[in-house]
Design a binder for these strands. Structure first.
Lengths: 144, 144
DNA sequence: TGAGATAGTTGGTAATTCCACCTATCTCTC
DNA sequence: GAGAGATAGGTGGAATTACCAACTATCTCA
C-alpha cells in the first residue's frame, strides 16, 4: 500500500493514530472505572451541555444506548439531566461539579501518559501538527 | 485553555481528532455488524498475525476479554487460531481470507466516508499531516 | 525434576449496545 | 384549535463487551 493519493495516506495515518490513542484511553479509563464510552461522554460534555440525541450523534451511538449511558453516569453523580423549559421533550445533559473535577483529573492523566510519547517530535513540529489537526477539525477548540 | 505548551495543545488536538474518528468508525462498524472493538481487532490483524496477549495489549484490553472477542470473531469466520509449534501455550491469530476481504471492504468504506472531510485541507497539507503523524507513530506503516 | 512463570481459557457479574416498540411533546395544516 | 405526523427520550429483551479471580497447560531454569 504505497499511497500515491495523499488522502488515502492521511486516512491510514489518522486511523492508526486513533487506534493507538483509543488503546491508551481504554486503559486509562479502566484505571478510573470508566469505559471508553463513558470517557468519551465526559470528553464531549467537558465544554458544552448537550441533549441526548446530540450526544448519541457525537459518539456514533443509538439514542437508546445513550439513554442508558447517561442514566448510569447520572447514578454515579457525574452528569445531571435538565428538562428544557422551551421544549418538554428535550433533556439537557451536563457535567456535575464532581463530573467536572473527575473529567479534569482524567484529562490531566491523559496528558501525563501521552506527553512522553510526543517527544518523538520536536516542539516546533508538535505545534505544526496541532495546528494542522485543528484546521482539519474545523470547529476551533472552544478556548478560554 | 490557551495552550502555551505545544505538547498540551497537541494532546488536546489528538484527543479531539481521535474522538471524532471513533464516532465515525463506531457507526461504520455498526453498519457492518461490527463493534468498534471488533473493527479495531481487524485493523490490527490487517497487516500482521498476533498472539492473544499481544492483541490485548494493542487494544488496551484484558486478555480474557480478548479471548472471547477472538472466539466470536472466529465463530463468524473472520479470524483463525493457530497453535504455535515452538510454544504450545501460544495461540496465533490471523485473518481468514474472508476476514481479509471484509477488512478491506470496511477500510474502503472508511476512506469514502472520511475523504470528503479531509478536503478541508489542501493536498499538500494533507501529505504534511500524514507525514507528521507517521513520524509521531514511529513504527512506519508496513507498506507493500 | 520440580518450582515458578507465562499463555490462554472459563465462569460470574456488570456494563454496553442494538432493535423494536412506547409515551410525551411539539408542529403544522386545515 | 383539533388532529396527523414528526421528534425526543425512554423501556425491555438479547447478544456482546469487559472486568476479575481462578484454572489448565506449557515452558523455563535452577
Amino acid at each position: 500500500m504505497t499511497h500515491e493519493d495523499p488522502a488515502a495516506a492521511l486516512v491510514d495515518a489518522l486511523g492508526r493514530t486513533s487506534f493507538l490513542l483509543t488503546a491508551v484511553l481504554t486503559r486509562l479509563g479502566a484505571d478510573n472505572e470508566l469505559s471508553l464510552t463513558q470517557l468519551r461522554l465526559l470528553g464531549v460534555l467537558r465544554d458544552r451541555r448537550a441533549r441526548v440525541t446530540e450526544l448519541a450523534d457525537r459518539l456514533g451511538l443509538d439514542k437508546s444506548t445513550m439513554s442508558g449511558l447517561v442514566a448510569r453516569a447520572e447514578r454515579r453523580g457525574l452528569v445531571e439531566r435538565d428538562r428544557n423549559p422551551h421544549d418538554g421533550r428535550v433533556v439537557e445533559i451536563s457535567l456535575t461539579a464532581e463530573g467536572e473535577r473527575f473529567a479534569r483529573r482524567v484529562e490531566q492523566q491523559a496528558r501525563e501518559v501521552l506527553t512522553p510519547a510526543l517527544d518523538r517530535l520536536p516542539p516546533a513540529r508538535q505545534a505544526q501538527l496541532a495546528e494542522l489537526l485543528d484546521e482539519l477539525l474545523g470547529d476551533p477548540a472552544p478556548s478560554s
